[in-house]
Measured scan of single mutants.
Amino acid sequence: MDVFMKGLSKAKEGVVAAAEKTKQGVAEAAGKTKEGVLYVGSKTKEGVVHGVATVAEKTKEQVTNVGGAVVTGVTAVAQKTVEGAGSIAAATGFVKKDQLGKNEEGAPQEGILEDMPVDPDNEAYEMPSEEGYQDYEPEA
């Protein structure tokens, strides 16, 4: 019985440690998101679009440190934060509304985080759909 109880105690310690790591990862992701939003706020009209992409990228980098179902929630929060940063930029006159959601080359930025393969159960990952990809044929 002692062996059984000791095993359960060790398992509990492992769960607590994993929860603490997840909590730490979420806190880091939130900190990076805040950094990115402050970065966007300090940019001029020309830099705002690039700044919004930076927020998304920093958040995406930190999301990889967070495991399990938390990833889905962090990704949703990050996307809403990026959308909010863009709205703030438009409201303050840093950028025109028609410039939001495009990178410096004018290509749409939507789907940055949505296409990231995420499995809350950590069982399997699927690649994003290939609808947006084109076949590449090298020139002879």
Score class of each variant (00 low, 15 high):
Gly14Leu: 14
Val16Met: 15
Asp2Ser: 02
Ala19Val: 11
Gln109Cys: 07
Val40Met: 08
Ile112Glu: 05
Gln134Ala: 06
Gln99Ile: 12
Ala17Tyr: 11
Tyr133Asp: 12
Glu126Arg: 10
Ser42Lys: 13
Ala107Leu: 12
Gly31Arg: 10
Gln24Cys: 03
Gly51Thr: 11
Gly36Met: 14
Ala107Ser: 10
Lys23Gly: 01
Thr75His: 15
Pro108Trp: 07
Gly101His: 10
Ala19Phe: 15
Gly47Tyr: 14
Gly51Asp: 01
Lys45Val: 12
Val74Arg: 01
Val95Ser: 07
Phe4Asn: 00
Gly41Leu: 02
Ala19Tyr: 15
Lys21Val: 10
Met1Pro: 00
Phe94Tyr: 12
Asp2Trp: 02
Val63Met: 14
Gly73Ile: 07
Gly106Lys: 07
Pro128Val: 04
Val3Phe: 02
Ser9Asp: 03
Lys80Thr: 04
Asn122Thr: 10
Gly86Val: 12
Gly73Arg: 06
Tyr133Trp: 09
Ala78Asp: 01
Val70Cys: 04
Thr59Ser: 05
Ala53Gly: 06
Gly101Phe: 13
Tyr136Thr: 06
Gly68Phe: 12
Ile112Thr: 07
Thr59Lys: 01
Ala124Glu: 13
Pro128Ser: 04
Gly93Asn: 04
Glu126Phe: 07
Asn122Gln: 08
Ser87Val: 14
Val77Trp: 15
Glu35Cys: 12
Val74Gln: 01
Val77Pro: 02
Ala140Phe: 08
Gly68Thr: 13
Tyr39Asn: 03
Gly47Cys: 07
Gln99Trp: 14
Val40Asp: 00
Glu83Trp: 11
Gln79His: 06
Phe94Asp: 03
Asn103Ala: 05
Thr59Trp: 14
Asn103Tyr: 08
Lys96His: 08
Pro138Gly: 12
Pro128Lys: 05
Val52Trp: 15
Thr75Arg: 06
Glu105Gly: 07
Thr72Lys: 07
Val82Ser: 04
Val66Ile: 15
Val55Gln: 01
Glu20Cys: 12
Ala89Gln: 05
Asn65Val: 11
Lys6Ser: 03
Thr92Glu: 04
Glu131Ala: 12
Gln62Lys: 07
Glu110Met: 07
Gly51Phe: 11
Asp119Glu: 11
Val40Thr: 01
Thr72Ser: 13
Ala11Ser: 02
Gln79Ser: 11
Lys34Gln: 02
Ser9Gly: 13
Lys96Val: 13
Ala107Asn: 09
Asp121Gly: 11
Asp115Gly: 14
Ala30Tyr: 15
Gly31Val: 03
Gly41Tyr: 11
Thr72Asn: 15
Tyr136Trp: 12
Ser42His: 08
Val74Ile: 03
Ala53Ile: 14
Leu100Ala: 12
Gln134Phe: 05
Asp98Gly: 13
Val70Gln: 01
Gly51Tyr: 13
Val71Cys: 04
Ala17Trp: 12
Leu113Pro: 10
Val95Gly: 08
Ala89Lys: 03
Ala29Gly: 02
Ser87Pro: 06
Ser42Val: 10
Gly36His: 15
Ala78His: 04
Met5Ser: 02
Val71Trp: 15
Phe4Arg: 00
Met1Trp: 00
Val95Ile: 14
Pro120Ala: 10
Gln24Ile: 13
Ala78Trp: 15
Ser87Asp: 09
Pro138Cys: 10
Asp115Met: 08
Lys102Val: 14
Thr72Ala: 12
Glu123Trp: 12
Glu46Cys: 06
Ala124Pro: 07
Lys43His: 05
Met127Val: 08
Val49Ala: 12
Glu110Cys: 07
Gly132Arg: 13
Lys43Ala: 09
Ser9Met: 14
Lys43Asn: 02
Pro128Asp: 12
Ser9Ile: 12
Asp115Ile: 05
Ser42Trp: 15
Tyr133Met: 09
Leu113His: 11
Lys32Leu: 14
Lys32Arg: 10
Gly106Cys: 09
Ala89His: 04
Ala56Tyr: 09
Ala85Arg: 03
Gly73Cys: 15
Lys23Phe: 07
Val66Asp: 01
Ser129Cys: 08
Ile88Asn: 02
Met5His: 00
Lys43Cys: 10
Val52Met: 14
Val95His: 07
Val49Asn: 03
Gln79Tyr: 04
Glu131Gly: 04
Gly132Asp: 12
Lys102Leu: 13
Asn122Lys: 11
Ala29Glu: 00
Leu100Trp: 02
Ala90Val: 11
Pro120Arg: 12
Thr72Trp: 08
Asp98His: 09
Ile112Lys: 04
Asn103Gly: 06
Val40Gly: 01
Gln62Leu: 07
Val95Leu: 13
Ser129Lys: 04
Lys45His: 02
Val26Met: 15
Ala107Glu: 05
Glu130Phe: 09
Asp119Tyr: 03
Ala19Gln: 01
Lys12Glu: 00
Gln24Gly: 03
Gly14Ser: 14
Lys102Trp: 14
Gly14Glu: 11
Gly68Ala: 11
Asp115Pro: 04
Glu83Phe: 03
Val3Arg: 15
Lys21Asn: 03
Gly25Trp: 11
Gly14Phe: 11
Ala90His: 10
Asn65Gly: 11
Glu114Thr: 03
Leu113Glu: 13
Glu139Cys: 02
Gly84Met: 15
Ile112Phe: 05
Glu57Lys: 08
Asp2Val: 00
Thr72Pro: 02
Val66Ala: 07
Lys12Met: 15
Val16Gly: 03
Tyr133Phe: 08
Lys12Trp: 13
Ser87Met: 13
Val82Gly: 02
Glu104Leu: 08
Val95Pro: 06
Gln62Ser: 09
Lys12Phe: 15
Val77His: 01
Tyr39Ile: 09
Lys34Val: 15
Gly73Trp: 12
Gln24His: 10
Met127Gln: 12
Gly106Val: 06
Ala27Ser: 05
Thr72Cys: 11
Ala53Glu: 08
Gln62Asp: 01
Gly86Ser: 12
Tyr125Asn: 06
Glu123Asp: 13
Glu13Cys: 07
Glu137Arg: 10
Lys80Phe: 06
Leu38Ser: 03
Asn103Arg: 07
Thr33Glu: 00
Ala56Glu: 01
Thr75Met: 09
Tyr133Ile: 02
Phe94Lys: 03
Glu114His: 07
Ala91Arg: 05
Thr92Ser: 07
Gln62Arg: 12
Tyr125Lys: 13
Glu104Ser: 06
Ala76Glu: 05
Gly84Phe: 13
Val37Thr: 01
Ala19Asp: 00
Thr22Gly: 03
Val71Gly: 02
Gly93Leu: 07
Gln24Ser: 09
Ser42Arg: 09
Pro120Met: 08
Tyr39Ser: 05
Gly86Leu: 14
Ala91Val: 11
Gly132Cys: 12
Lys12Thr: 13
